[in-house]
Design a protein around this nucleic acid. Sequence first.
DNA 1: TCTGGGGTCCTAGGACCC
DNA 2: TCTGGGGTCCTAGGACCC
Length: 478
Amino acid sequence: MFALVDGNNFYCSCERVFQPYLQNRPLIVLSNNDGCAIARSDEAKALGIRMGAPYFQIKHLEKTANLATRSANFTLYGDMSNRMMGVAAQMGPEQEIYSIDECFIGLHGLPTNSLTERAWHTHRQIAQWTGIPNCIGIGPTKTLAKLANHIAKSADRQIKPYPAILAKVCNFAELNDRQTSYLFQKIAVSEVWGIGRRIARQLQAEGILSIWDFMQLSAATVRQRWSVVLESTWRELHGTPCRQLEANPEPRQQIAYTRSFGHPTTALPDLESAITTFATRAADKLRKQHSQASQVLVFAKSSPFATNTAPHSRTVVQGLSEPSNNTVALVAAALAALRKLYQPGIRYSKAGVMLLDLCNVPPWGQAGKSQRALDEQAGGDALDLGLLNSHDAALVHGAETEQLSLDFSPLAAQQAHSQQQAKAQRLMTALDAITHRFGHDTVVLASQLDGKRGWQMRQEQRSPHYTTCLGDVPVVRV
DNA sequence: TCTGGGGTCCTAGGACCC
DNA sequence: TCTGGGGTCCTAGGACCC
């Protein structure tokens, strides 16, 4: 059995914890750059504000409908998320943090008849200890737990066919056949986790509208007409677990940092500043998961919404001579890529850095995982045997050393190289310590200061960092 | 004027190999 | 005359999630 714990309208709820006057009032949280609505309170949903609605199209509601608006404050949301996840973790033996506002809990080993009560306890404790309203769904598969959560949330909002009794906590396993078939027939297939807009539209075209309709298909049909992915969704709806709990997620396979600019720019120094910032942040994420990258991808593009010019976008992938997680090396590669793709006269409105081809560094910090490093190590052993040049080394290693002989460097150069690496490692350790203590951009590479800062994002209505910055901690007057 | 950001997985097709 | 069969790796594109 699985539970899905989900914070309601999470970003809005985080804002309301510290600004209670925002309760019972339409509230939206905007994306980076104050571009569009990425979270909506129930009242804002009732006003018809869509997910992703551009801010400039709904701004008038601030005057006509008492709409409150906040810029995204991800520092606050991340910290509130940690607190909520900490409480939710106590519900069962295993937890998978699925996104900033929801987690799966593995419930195996717990008495089945205790699960609903555990859920209610967790639900109340999250509300009391963090102030975040939340709903919990329980089911025999992750897909059914998600569906149960959807039912709990919809019932909580008093949406039509959902029985009020299932509000806040819904345990699918406690429903009888009549109840489940009623719900399957009433709920649109598009509400199922894993069925997005495209597939929903294709199903609709076949007259498959409800979950019930979808479940009447055969597994073979689903696989044949759609995919193995959709087939496992179908099986999960029928109660067969296909998706495991992933309590210890693998390190990411790619790391991205991309941003739209506050104002478009045509100047290379502005872009250099932005790309330096983005690569610095990406390198930071990379070291946090103890990985190294072998390739750096940089893109820059004009606005896709400009009406008078054709959209422009270019991408360049820059390889590194060896895998690295060193900010200086990654920024250098990113800037080299930027200079390759830059064209004067383009009004750039968005750019990004992605780190690709990642490999893990052993936790003890030896940068010795790459094949090249291993080769060099082998070369070092050869040197110890008294072989003094690359020709001799090639003889020892045979046919496989064609490349090695090109790269091979004498012992002194190798030592210099590893000394340099150790130095760079210490520099990064110091940089990370400073960032951890004083925040991003305390120490930066000089190229980050190039140009004007017009690319920096707009955040005009950001709330304070209530929980992570001493100066922003709320003051209570008695 | 003004439209987010960061991921994953699967599949098809081409290159290449034996 | 005739044009196998099986495998890997890589990439681009499409779908999904929050």
